[in-house]
Write a protein that binds this DNA or RNA. Structure first.
Length: 303
DNA sequence: AAGATTAGCAACCGCAAGTAC
DNA sequence: AGTACTTGCGGTTGCTAATCT
C-alpha cells in the first residue's frame, strides 16, 4: 500500500498556479483534506504532499481570512496567547477563526521586527536617556509613525499581573481605518510584572504619553518620561515571551481582556471558520463548499 | 525618477510524532 | 519490533509591493 515513490519525477516548487489550486481543491472535494501524497502519486500534481497540504491549509481552505489584516482583537489574542503558550502558532491559531498558524507566525514575526526597529532606533536616538524630541520618526511600512510611547498606568498599579508597557508603533496601520479606534487602546501584558518587579515604577499618577512633539518641553509638559536604563534594557529583550504592545494611551478602566475560546477543538478535524472578510477575494472554487462541509469529513479513502 | 528600505506574505525545509505495514 | 511513510509544526527564506530618500 505505502510504496516508496520510485518515479523520479521532477517536483515542482514555487508559487501555485490557479490550475494547480483547482486540482488540489477537486482532490479535497473528493477525498477530503487527506492523502496529500496521493496527489502526486496519481500524477495529478508535481507537488509534494507536504506542499499540497500547506497550500490547502494556508490558502485554499474555506473561510480563511486571506488578505485581511489582523484586527485589534486578534492582535491582542495573539499577544496574550504567545505570552502564555510561547511560539505555539498552531495552538494560538485555534483561537483565531480564519487564521492559520502561518498567519500568526508571520504576524508575530513582522511585529517583532517592527518593535525591534522601533526600540533600536529609540535607543539610538538617545544615549543616556530616552529623548522623544531627538527621536526621529520610525518608518513602518512606509509610514512615519510616532516614536516610542510608553504608558504606565499607576491607577492600575504596577503589580505583577497588570503591568503595562506600551510602545507606540504602527498598530493602527495594521487595521484599516483603525487609528481612531485603536490608538487609545492599551494592552495589558500579563506577567510582565515579573520582569519588572525589580524595577518598580513609583509614579504617582498616570503617565500616559501622547504624541511626541517638536517642542523641547513637551516631554515634561505631557508627562513624557525617559526610559530608565533598566526599562530600556527590558524593552530591548525582544526575545522575551512577553511582548510590549504598541498601542496608545492607557484606558485603565478596561479590564484585562478575556481570551477567546478556541473556536474548534484542536484536533485533526478540519477547522471551521465563522465568516469571511469582505476583503477576501471571492474564490469561485470555494463557492462550491458548504460552510461546514469539512466539519464532518468522512474518512473517504483514497483508492 | 531611481534606488533603498521595509513590511507582508507565500512557500520551503528540517524535525518530530503518529500510523500503517 | 522495526521500517517506511504521512502529517503537523516551527523556523527560515525569498519575493513583491509600498513607501521613503
Amino acid at each position: 500500500m505505502r510504496k516508496l515513490e520510485t518515479k523520479k519525477e521532477e517536483i515542482k516548487k514555487g508559487p501555485w498556479k490557479a490550475e494547480e489550486d483547482e486540482v488540489l481543491i477537486n482532490h479535497v472535494k473528493r477525498y477530503g483534506p487527506r492523502d496529500w501524497s496521493s496527489i502526486r502519486s496519481k500524477g495529478l500534481l508535481q507537488r509534494t504532499g507536504k506542499s499540497c497540504r500547506l497550500r490547502w491549509v494556508n490558502k485554499l481552505r474555506p473561510n480563511l481570512k486571506n488578505g485581511c489584516k489582523f484586527s485589534a482583537d486578534e492582535e491582542r489574542t495573539v499577544i496574550e496567547l504567545q505570552s502564555e503558550f510561547g511560539n505555539k502558532w498552531a495552538r494560538i491559531a485555534t483561537y483565531l477563526p480564519g487564521r492559520t498558524d502561518n498567519d500568526v507566525k508571520n504576524f508575530w514575526s513582522s511585529r517583532q521586527k517592527r518593535l525591534a526597529r522601533i526600540l533600536h532606533n529609540s535607543s539610538d536616538a538617545s544615549s543616556s536617556s530616552f529623548n522623544p524630541k531627538s527621536s526621529s520618526s520610525h518608518r513602518v511600512k512606509g509610514k512615519n509613525v510616532k516614536p516610542i510611547r510608553q504608558s504606565f498606568n499607576a491607577s492600575q498599579g504596577f503589580g505583577l499581573v497588570e503591568e503595562e508597557v506600551t510602545v507606540a508603533s504602527s498598530c493602527s496601520q495594521m487595521v484599516p481605518n483603525s487609528s481612531d479606534q485603536f490608538d487609545d487602546e492599551t494592552l495589558r501584558l500579563p506577567d510582565l510584572g515579573v520582569k519588572l518587579e525589580h524595577q518598580p515604577f513609583a509614579f504617582g499618577t498616570d503617565l500616559v504619553l501622547t504624541e511626541f512633539s517638536d517642542s523641547p518641553n513637551d516631554a515634561n509638559q505631557q508627562g513624557i518620561i525617559p526610559f530608565s536604563p533598566e526599562s530600556r534594557e527590558l524593552l530591548a529583550r525582544l526575545d522575551d515571551p512577553f511582548y510590549y504592545d504598541i498601542l496608545g494611551p492607557a484606558d485603565s478602566s478596561e479590564p484585562l481582556f478575556a481570551l477567546p475560546q478556541p473556536f474548534f477543538e484542536p484536533s485533526p478535524a478540519p477547522r471551521r471558520c465563522r465568516h469571511v472578510s469582505k476583503d477576501e477575494e471571492p474564490d469561485v472554487f470555494l463557492d462550491d463548499f458548504p460552510a461546514d462541509m469539512f466539519d464532518q469529513v468522512d474518512p473517504i479513502r483514497s483508492p
